[in-house]
Computed example of a mutant assay.
Amino acid sequence: MHTIPLDYETLRLIWWLLLGVLLIGFAIADGYDLGVGTLLPFAARTDEERRILINLVGPTWEGNQVWLILGGGAIFAAWPALYAASFSGFYLAMIAILLALILRPVGFKFRGKVYDPRWREAWDWCLFVGGFVPALISGVAVGNVLLGVPFGLDETLRPHYDGNFFGLLSPFALLAGLVSVGMVVTHGAAVIAARCEGPVAARARTYGGLAAIATAALFALGGLWVAFGLDGYVVTSAQDAFGPSNPLGKTVTQESGAWMANYGRHPWMAIAPILGFVGLALAFVGLAFRLWKTSILGSSAAIFGIISTAGLSLFPFLLPSSIQPGASLTVWDASSSHLTLFVMLIATVIFLPLILAYTVWVYRVMSGPVTATSIGRNPNAY
C-alpha cells in the first residue's frame, strides 16, 4: 500500500481552509448578485433602471452559484458528520434559502414576458426576496453556530436535532444576519456604482455608503457581544489530530468569552477583523469619491475579513453542540478518512484553478458599463 504524502493533521487543516475559501468565494462572487437584488426596488425606480440592474447580474449570477455547490459538496465529502448534523438541523432554513434562490431565475425569465407594470413590480419584489433572504438566513446560520446548535449524537454517531426554525431567530443570530445583509449590500452597491451611470449609480453610492457604516457598527457590536456576552466552547481533553474521526471521544465545556481565546494564543488572527473594518472603510471611501476599484476591492476584503473572523474564532470547532457539548464537531474529529481527503485534494488542485480561470474569463468578457443604450442594442437582454 502506498504511503500518503501528507499526514492526516495537515490534510484536515487544508480542508478546513478550503472550506473557508469556498464559502468566501461564494460570498464574494454571488454576494454582489444578492446585494444587487436587495437594492433593486430602492436603487432603481423606473422599469428601465430596473432592467439595467437585472442585466448587470443576468449574465453571471448562475455561474456564481457554482461556489455554493462546491461548498456543499466539500462539506458532504470532507466533513460528512458536519453535513449530516447541519443539513438536518438547518433543514427548514436551507429550504427557505433554496426557495428564495429559485425566485431569481424565475424572476429573470418571467418579468419581461408581460408588459404590465404590476406584473413587473411583483417580480421585482421576488428578486428582492431572492437577494435579501439568502443573505439574511446565511448570516443567521453563522450566528447560531457561534451560539451552539441544539443537536446531539447517539452511540452510533447518528445526529438528532432538538430545535426548530423559529428557535434559530435569536437576537444575536439576527444581528449576524444583518451583518451578512449589510456586507452584500455594500458589495452590490460598489458593483452598481462602478458599472452603471446616472441616478442608479448615484443611489447605489448613497445606499452603499450607509450599508458600509451600518455593517461596521453591527460587526463591532457583534464582536463586543461575543467577547462579553456569549459563552463559547473549549475542548478540555486531548484530541488526536492524527486519529480516526470520533466526535464523542472528547470533553467540552462552555466558558464566557471563549471564542476570543484564539486571538490571545495567536495574535496574528486579529488581521481578520481588522481587514473587515478596513475593507468597509475602503468601500465607503471608494463609493464617496467614485474610486470604483477601491470600493469593489474594499467590499471584497470586508467579506473576506468578516467571514474569516467567524472561522478563526470558532477554530477548531466546526459545529458546537449546545445540548451535548461533548458531541461538538471539530476539525480533528469530523472529517472523512485520510485517503478520502487526499484523493479529494488532488481533484481540487486540478479543477479549482480551472473554475477560477473560467470565472475570471467570464467577468472579463462581461465587463464594461451596463446602460439603457447597451441593453437596447442587445437582443438577449432581459
Rank of each mutant, 00 (worst) to 15 (best):
G177P: 03
V191C: 02
P134Q: 06
L169P: 05
A135W: 02
L224C: 08
S180Q: 09
L169N: 08
A135P: 05
A216M: 10
V184H: 01
V114K: 14
K109F: 14
G188I: 03
E197R: 13
A217C: 14
G222T: 03
G223K: 05
P159V: 07
V149Q: 07
C196D: 11
T206G: 11
R118W: 08
A201V: 01
G223Q: 06
A122P: 10
A193C: 10
F172M: 10
G152N: 02
L174H: 10
W125G: 03
L147M: 12
P150I: 03
N164F: 06
P171N: 07
M183P: 02
T156Q: 14
G177L: 05
F228N: 12
T215P: 08
N144R: 03
W119C: 10
A194T: 12
G198F: 06
A173C: 12
R203I: 12
G152P: 01
A202R: 14
W123H: 04
P134W: 02
D124R: 00
W225R: 11
W225V: 14
V129A: 14
E121A: 14
A122W: 15
G188K: 03
D116M: 13
F172N: 07
L224G: 15
Y115P: 13
L168I: 09
L168Y: 08
G223E: 03
R118D: 10
G223L: 01
G223A: 05
G223S: 11
Y207W: 12
E155I: 11
V149A: 09
F132R: 04
P171M: 09
A189W: 00
L178D: 02
R158Y: 13
G139Y: 01
W125K: 07
V184P: 02
V129Y: 06
M183F: 14
N144F: 07
V226E: 01
W125T: 04
G131D: 08
A193I: 08
P199L: 03
F128Q: 04
L146S: 06
L146E: 04
L157W: 09
G229N: 09
G209K: 04
N144L: 12
V181Q: 04
L221R: 06
L178G: 04
G130R: 01
F219C: 04
F110D: 01
A201M: 02
W125C: 06
T206E: 10
V142G: 05
P134N: 02
R120F: 03
L153W: 09
V142P: 00
W225A: 15
L218T: 02
G229A: 13
S170R: 11
G143F: 01
A214P: 05
T186H: 07
A212F: 01
